[in-house]
Computed example of a mutant assay.
Amino acid sequence: MCDPLNSPQLPPRILIVDDERFNRQLLTTVLQDEGIISTAGGSAEALEAVRMNPPDLILLDVRLPDMDGFEVCRRLKSNQATQDIPVIFITAMNNPEEEARGLHLGAVDYITKPFNHTVVKARVRTQLRLKQQANLLSRYAFHDALTGLANRRAFDRLGEHEWNSCQRQSLPLAADPAGC
């Protein structure tokens, strides 16, 4: 029997954000078998890449020239469309306070440079597996397992989203069918 919610998985998309070209190339080489890799050399480029094609995982340097990685993470986590994308900080900043700050902002891991290739691969695999499981759980929670159609929970979530949107824009939730 075919399960409409259990469709074939696409390879995960990983975004590497680092202002050092060497680091981007090294991480791309280390992670090339883990998914589709894209890179960004700065914060603005990274935020645009996430907006255009949200990745499944972001590896983010803390020290970036245009905006630090902590601010990038804060922006991602404050946006409903990107808040569930796991962020792993990869940085030369080996300071427990900075690590705690990154984790407090919502990062799922913090890896210091120079890093061990095997450890980076293992941590990336773990986060990608957790992301895949969360996505599957969400699909099962909001869709009927037999038909694949949205269920009542999905309707309630969409209704709440639309209600909040109308409230922000001072618009009615429904139009008057008589046109009055």
Results as ranks from 00 to 15, higher is better:
3 D>T: 03
7 S>P: 06
8 P>G: 02
9 Q>N: 09
13 R>V: 07
16 I>T: 05
16 I>Q: 04
18 D>K: 01
22 F>C: 03
22 F>I: 00
25 Q>V: 05
26 L>S: 00
27 L>N: 01
30 V>I: 07
40 A>T: 02
42 G>K: 03
44 A>F: 11
44 A>L: 10
45 E>R: 00
46 A>L: 04
47 L>Q: 02
48 E>K: 09
49 A>R: 10
52 M>S: 10
53 N>V: 08
55 P>G: 06
55 P>S: 05
61 D>I: 03
61 D>A: 01
63 R>A: 11
63 R>H: 06
64 L>D: 05
64 L>R: 00
64 L>I: 01
65 P>V: 06
70 F>L: 06
75 R>F: 10
78 S>E: 14
79 N>E: 15
80 Q>K: 08
80 Q>T: 11
83 Q>K: 14
84 D>Q: 11
84 D>F: 07
85 I>A: 00
89 F>E: 03
89 F>R: 05
91 T>P: 07
92 A>S: 14
94 N>R: 12
94 N>K: 10
95 N>T: 09
95 N>I: 10
96 P>T: 12
96 P>F: 14
99 E>N: 13
99 E>L: 11
100 A>F: 15
100 A>Q: 15
102 G>R: 11
103 L>H: 07
105 L>K: 05
107 A>Y: 09
107 A>I: 04
110 Y>M: 05
112 T>A: 03
117 H>D: 13
118 T>Y: 12
122 A>P: 08
123 R>W: 05
123 R>T: 07
126 T>Y: 14
126 T>M: 13
131 K>C: 05
131 K>F: 10
133 Q>D: 14
135 N>L: 13
138 S>W: 14
138 S>Q: 15
139 R>D: 15
142 F>H: 12
142 F>N: 12
142 F>I: 08
143 H>R: 13
145 A>W: 06
148 G>Q: 05
149 L>H: 04
152 R>S: 01
153 R>E: 01
153 R>L: 02
155 F>S: 00
155 F>T: 01
156 D>Q: 04
161 H>R: 10
162 E>V: 13
164 N>Q: 15
166 C>V: 02
171 L>N: 08
174 A>H: 15
177 P>T: 11
177 P>I: 12
179 G>P: 09
180 C>K: 08
180 C>Y: 13
